[in-house]
């Protein structure tokens, strides 16, 4: 059986909120290392990969592999009943029909309990090759969100060009063009404001801004976001969570002109 207790419901609420517009039905794969999820959007352009390590829960118990097929719209409805600060416990039997969610208020003696019916989801599982990326950019997640939103006002696509000079986000649209360039930057007092660019070779790739803006819904999960790029491979956008847990998005590039 599965029993996983989160100190704050907020974490799961934010994760589900960040991915629910990209993917609808997904398997939450539970085993003794934690709870993982991998799902592609309908058009096979973007992929979300979530890992909540067992250390992110206390306690965490999962004796055998359990796949919880959950509709994220249903999960969102139930999670709306949880306060951000509530303690959240997920429970399921070994061959479950339902997943049980318990929300406990730390301040009052209120306990709420919900069951969500599970679905059989035959999900295609993709192997993601280990990649040595040509460029890795760490930057404030709010900055990335702002750049994507600002450029989306002009264009559907953004080119991300990484060179020794820095990283340039540029777009061209009907009304004109725009770009934002960031250089490496260290803020001793506020490390969350750092921009770090790790480059082995110059990279230039073009991506759909609609998807990037969608990924940015995860911004509240982490002060920093990591972008990993290599020519002609999907972009990796990573939001690191505590205890080596993470929320990652992959986005296929656009080609041609």
């Amino acid at each position: 059986m599965l029993e996983a207790r989160l100190e704050q419901a907020n974490l799961l609420k934010k994760v589900v909120d960040a991915i629910k517009d990209l993917v609808q039905d997904c398997n939450f794969d539970c085993n003794d290392s934690g709870i993982a999820l991998q799902a592609m959007d309908n058009s096979h352009v973007a992929l979300v990969s979530m890992m909540l390590k067992s250390e992110s829960f206390s306690p965490f118990r999962c004796d055998r592999n359990i796949a919880l097929g959950i509709n994220l719209t249903s999960l969102t409805k139930v999670l709306r009943a949880a306060q951000n600060e509530d303690i959240l416990t997920l429970k399921a039997e070994d061959a479950p029909d339902v997943v049980n969610l318990v929300f406990e208020s730390a301040e009052s003696d209120r306990i709420s309990e919900y069951d969500i019916k599970l679905m059989d989801i035959d999900q295609e599982h993709l192997g993601i090759p280990e990649t040595e990326y040509a460029a890795t950019i760490s930057m404030p997640s709010a900055e990335f969100q702002r750049i994507c939103r600002d450029l989306m006002a002009l264009s559907e696509s953004v080119s991300i060009e990484c060179s020794k000079e820095g990283v340039k986000f540029a777009c061209q649209g009907d009304i004109g063009s725009g770009s934002v360039t960031l250089r490496s930057h260290t803020n001793v007092d506020k490390p969350e404001m750092n921009v770090e660019i790790d480059l082995t070779e110059p990279v230039s790739l073009t991506f759909s801004l609609k998807y990037l803006v969608g990924f940015c819904k995860a911004s509240s999960l982490s002060g920093q976001v990591k972008l990993c790029l290599s020519n002609e491979v999907p972009l990796l956008v990573e939001y690191a969570l505590a205890n080596n847990s993470y929320l990652r998005f992959y986005l296929a590039p656009k080609i041609g002109d």
Binding site: H44, I128, G256
Partner: peptide, 14 residues
């Protein structure tokens, strides 16, 4: 115009 690629080109099915 740019053509959107899909992930199937890059990631293998398991």
């Amino acid at each position: 115009h740019h053509v959107q690629q899909t992930l199937d080109t890059f990631f293998c099915s398991r």
